[in-house]
């Protein structure tokens, strides 16, 4: 399954102008050890990837929310990312190093919608790294909480 859409993605990447996939504005850039050194995604590209839904609470909101997005490990596999660490950078230049092992061990997603509403740049959008916090006690830790990068803009694979 993943291979099929990965192949599709490869076609898109080959046919689209380098570094600016799709018609919309690029919202996520992946750099470092990936196909061609850099890949850019707009929202439509992300919508084309297998959709994953995750319900969890967060430390900055009340109650439980339903997040929709793509699995981080699918995303990285699609660009043939090869590395141990992902440096995630937000629009406000907040940067944090995340071990790639997190995406293997947990179903971490890059969410583009919360409770069915697309994430807004004036709030946590357009993209938010969300951990399945309620499903794993180990994730209910301050050392995981700082990895929840919102207004995600760039991933650098090292």
């Amino acid at each position: 399954m993943r291979n099929r859409w990965a192949a599709g993605l490869a076609v898109i990447l080959l046919t689209a102008p380098h570094g600016a996939a799709g018609d919309g504005d690029a919202i996520l850039r992946i750099t470092g050890n990936v196909t061609g050194g850099a890949v850019a995604f707009d929202l439509d590209d992300l919508h084309d990837l297998p959709r994953v839904t995750l319900e969890t609470s967060t430390v900055v909101t009340d109650g439980i929310h339903r997040f929709t997005g793509v699995l981080m490990r699918d995303l990285l596999a699609g660009v043939e990312a090869d590395g141990d660490t992902v440096t995630a950078t937000a629009l406000n230049d907040y940067a944090v190093d995340i071990p790639v092992a997190d995406f293997r061990d947990y179903d971490v997603i890059v969410a583009y919608a919360m409770d069915g509403t697309p994430l807004d740049r004036a709030d946590k959008g357009p993209l938010w790294i969300v951990y399945p916090r309620d499903d794993h006690t180990a994730l209910q830790d301050i050392r995981y909480d700082y990895r929840w990068v919102w207004q995600l803009a760039r991933l650098d694979i090292r």
């Binding site: 430390v59 900055v60 909101t61 009340d62 629009l91 740049r121 004036a122 709030d123 919102w150 207004q151």
Partner: peptide, 19 residues
């Protein structure tokens, strides 16, 4: 617009639940 959105995002964060 980007910088204003980021500020709005911060204010929205402060207006949410625990904050």
């Amino acid at each position: 617009a980007l910088r204003l959105d980021i500020l709005r995002s911060r204010v929205a964060l402060l207006n949410a639940g625990p904050q």
